[in-house]
Design a protein around this nucleic acid. Structure first.
Length: 438
DNA sequence: GGACTGCTATGGTCGTTAAT
DNA sequence: ATTAACGACCATAGCAGTCC
């Protein structure tokens, strides 16, 4: 605005009017009123230090600013009111009196009222039945109205459909219904502040039962490091007992290298937190640093087992098997083929055309397993794929004519990838079985 | 004339609301 | 969440009127 200055940097309420050098403690708003000569909480600025024109100009400006702000506020309240008024649920069909039989209060119907009050005890049996049916119709219509609002919210904010398939959602709906009209929704600050804290506390108290189980039969500690989307290295610690798995802590560890000592410290601290007597074993993957930590722990706490994660072990086995020359060539060829097919939109479309929309790549939980899943998938769709590579639809694709495309194509035909897969899957299973159980 | 009361204008504070 | 803006409300000064 250019007509005021701050007197005290630490107190934004202390401002000085440069039209007359007056100081005031009422903040900018008060000053605007002062200059605009509006409001009853303030004197009117006389503009001693400036010309009449400048004072008038400033007056105009301040008046405008005050009016504008006021208008905006009013507009907003009006808009919110309108928004609420747009919501019509209870007045569907115009047969309101049916919903409010015997009720003089502004209708505040719970689900039970709906059925009890609606049935007039003095009515004959057939009459009450008719009314019940009428109510049922209305009931349905009202429900549909509400559902439409919920659906709009879900669609507009990309909330996954299964988000409503749980008890929390049902309870939420019931709670809103019981509260009645005019409910004030939580703000996002409520959600991330107090409400979050409360829920956290509640969840924690729910875990108390788990604690008891831990005390009784002991628990395992699981830890693993992973990188999030921002490439931060995060280490987390979970426990597992007969009652289930619960999260203990996570820590960003991007700044330190994950040496055996670091991991040992982390695990040891977790053991200390939970209680050394309740921890039976520690589970990690097979990385060498973890194995180092295993040794350290064994020295300090010989009674706690350190176990390798079975999934990771199998993973390593799969990797090892995949590296055997007998399988490596086949896997590489299949990989090249799928990468090629998935690398171009047209080839991918062509494949889906032949497989009727089915995929040959299944993003596996783990890298090495997905190799085999893909092989299996190729084997499963061999008829369709075979058809595809000799079909004119495939041949006519520009991408297939490229160097890479030709190579993949030839590989596929010449090496008889499909038969190879068959053999490999069989051998693979045998090897896995013998490693695991043999 | 001094004490008191009541009123108003203005200043100051602080809780609420909006914006970032 | 933090901060800015707002506005309601309280405090106080100053004034006028009234009473003793």
């Amino acid at each position: 605005m250019g007509v005021w200055v701050l007197v005290d940097i630490n107190n934004k309420d202390k401002v000085k009017c440069i039209l007359c050098d007056k100081q005031m403690c009422g903040g900018v708003y008060r000053l605007k009123q002062y200059i605009a000569q509006e409001g009853k909480n303030v004197k009117k600025c006389q503009g001693m230090k400036t010309t009449k024109e400048k004072l008038l100009e400033a007056q105009e400006k301040c008046k405008k600013a005050l009016d504008e702000a006021k208008r905006k506020r009013e507009e907003k309240t009006v808009r919110e009111l309108e928004l609420r008024e747009e919501v019509h649920v209870s007045r569907v069909g115009g047969s309101e009196e049916v919903t409010c039989v015997g009720s003089l209060e502004p209708h505040k119907l719970g689900p039970v009222d709906k059925w009890t009050k609606a049935i007039d005890p003095t009515a004959t049996k057939s009459e009450s039945l008719t009314q019940q049916r009428l109510n049922k119709e209305l009931w349905k219509e009202r429900l549909h109205e509400v559902h439409k609002y919920i659906a709009r919210w879900v669609f507009n904010h990309a909330i996954s459909f299964n988000a409503c398939d749980n008890d929390e959602f049902k309870q939420m709906c019931e709670a809103i219904g019981q509260f009645g009209p005019g409910i004030e929704p939580p703000t996002m600050f409520d959600l991330r502040g107090g409400l979050l804290e409360e829920e956290y506390a509640r969840t924690k108290s729910l875990l108390q039962e788990c604690e008891a189980e831990k005390m009784k039969n002991g628990c395992s500690i699981m830890t693993d490091a992973w990188s999030d989307k921002k490439r931060r290295s995060i280490m987390n610690v979970c426990t597992n007992c007969a009652d289930g798995t619960s999260f203990i802590s996570s820590k960003e560890m991007s700044d330190v290298s994950h040496t055996s000592e670091v991991i040992f410290e982390l695990v040891d601290k977790a053991i200390e937190d939970i209680g050394p007597d309740d921890v039976v074993q520690v589970v990690t993957d097979n990385a060498s640093n973890n194995m180092g930590a295993k040794k350290l722990l064994h020295v300090k706490r010989p009674h706690i087992f350190w176990t390798s994660c079975a999934a990771h072990t199998i993973n390593l086995m799969l990797q090892g098997i995949g590296n055997m020359p007998r399988f490596k060539k086949m896997i590489d060829q299949a990989k090249a083929f799928t990468i090629f097919v998935y690398g171009h939109t047209r080839t991918l479309e062509c494949m889906r055309y032949f497989t009727e929309g089915k995929e040959i790549v299944r993003p596996g939980v783990t890298r090495f397993a997905s190799n085999y899943l893909t092989l299996d998938s190729i084997q499963e769709k061999k008829d369709q794929l075979r058809k595809m590579v000799v079909h004119s639809r495939w041949d006519s694709l520009k991408d297939v004519k490229s160097k890479k495309g030709k190579k993949c194509h030839n590989n596929y035909i010449e090496s008889n990838l499909l038969e190879g897969c068959k053999v490999d899957i069989g051998s693979f299973c045998a090897i896995v079985q013998s490693s695991l159980f043999g």
